[in-house]
């Protein structure tokens, strides 16, 4: 519009107007520094959660009890790596590269979801993660498909589709166990007992104690409060647990006719904070393994970069599918060292 008053052209006003109209903010648009920083923090934490989250499940790839389950699990862990890729790319649109974010993860300056600090002790844990952890993640993430930042919202649409597939697979895995032998049923129940409360903690602290919530809601990065989402998740899980033939480990869990929701017991926030502080069962081993993989892979990344530098226009490790398939005619490389 050419008739807008000059004031409304100020970048801040354009940004506010876009938010008010529920439009998407795109990478080239002006945005407040704090909005950008909040997004980078949140997207990075999400990306880190995807790649750290590969570990507890990869723990069972080599022991999957049937070839069908093995294929499903491998594909799932692969999807998580793919989600990590989309999310690091979304963060890159805000001016922060993957290397920098990985450094922050490895040095403990950025977090990943605390849920992955719990161990996967039996095969049934693979099912419990799919059903409960992915279920909680979806409940959190579906509203992010409408997040005000375009690249993040679009990445989330794709991620949520795949996550809901994983969630159904996890449910189906648990169902097979629950209806299986006595030992399999017990394995499933034990896994649900161990993953239920940590899954409820995935929604974050109660609303009155949540540090970032209010501003994120105003920026339309976040659309619902932690407690709302947690309640929604509990209400979804109760009937699903019944169909599974499994119980949820909460004696206070019951339908509240007046509220139209399930009441549930008090969450142990001390445990939540302890895990967040680094004292969970697997905090050290998760980050240690990530660091080790990164350090052990350094020579590979360096080689790819050196090769790319010698052969103009070729990417080091990226875009394999898009890469040239014809061969270079450089003859003998100059460097045949070592």
């Amino acid at each position: 519009m050419t008739t807008t008053v000059p004031d409304a052209q100020a970048p801040e006003a354009v940004f506010d107007a876009a938010l008010a109209a529920d439009e998407r903010i795109e990478p080239r648009d002006w945005m407040p520094d704090a909005y950008r920083a909040t997004l980078v923090r949140q997207i990075a934490q999400h990306a880190h959660s995807e790649i750290i989250g590969m570990q507890p499940e990869a723990n069972w790839i080599t022991r999957a009890p049937s070839l069908r389950r093995k294929a499903i699990l491998m594909a799932k862990v692969q999807d998580e790596a793919g989600h990590g890729l989309y999310l690091y790319s979304a963060a890159e649109t805000l001016g922060t590269g993957r290397e920098e974010l990985l450094d922050k993860l490895h040095s403990g300056r950025q977090r990943y979801s605390s849920i992955f600090n719990y161990p996967t002790l039996t095969w049934a844990d693979v099912g419990a993660i799919g059903w409960l952890v992915d279920g909680a993640a979806i409940t959190n993430q579906v509203p992010l498909c409408r997040c005000s930042y375009g690249p993040y919202a679009r990445a989330m649409i794709r991620i949520c589709k795949e996550e809901s597939f994983h969630q159904r697979q996890g449910y189906e895995l648990l169902l097979a166990l629950s209806r299986g032998t006595e030992a399999q049923h017990a394995m499933a129940q034990d896994a649900v007992n161990r993953w239920w409360w940590p899954s409820l903690m995935m929604f974050g602290p109660p609303d009155d104690a949540s540090a970032h919530s209010a501003q994120s809601m105003a920026w339309k990065i976040k659309r619902h409060s932690n407690d709302e989402l947690r309640q929604r998740f509990v209400d979804i899980c109760v009937p699903q647990a019944e169909s599974l033939g499994l119980t949820l480990p909460d004696p206070d869990l019951r339908w509240n006719e007046q509220r139209g929701h399930h009441d549930f017991g008090a969450i142990d926030w001390d445990e939540f904070h302890e895990v967040l502080r680094g004292n969970g069962p697997c905090n050290e081993q998760r980050i240690e393994r990530r660091r080790r993989a990164h350090e052990e892979g350094a020579w590979v990344r360096e080689a790819a970069a050196a090769y790319a530098a010698k052969h103009d226009g070729h990417h080091g490790t990226h875009d394999k599918h898009a890469e040239h398939t014809e061969h270079d005619n450089h003859g003998k490389p100059e460097e045949a060292a070592a």
Binding site: M54, A58, K70, A81, L85, A293, G297, V300
Partner: peptide, 17 residues
Amino acid sequence: GEWAGNAPVLEEEVALA
């Protein structure tokens, strides 16, 4: 499959899987 979570770069997690 033993590489899962251990690959030198994220693209290789996807490729090896």
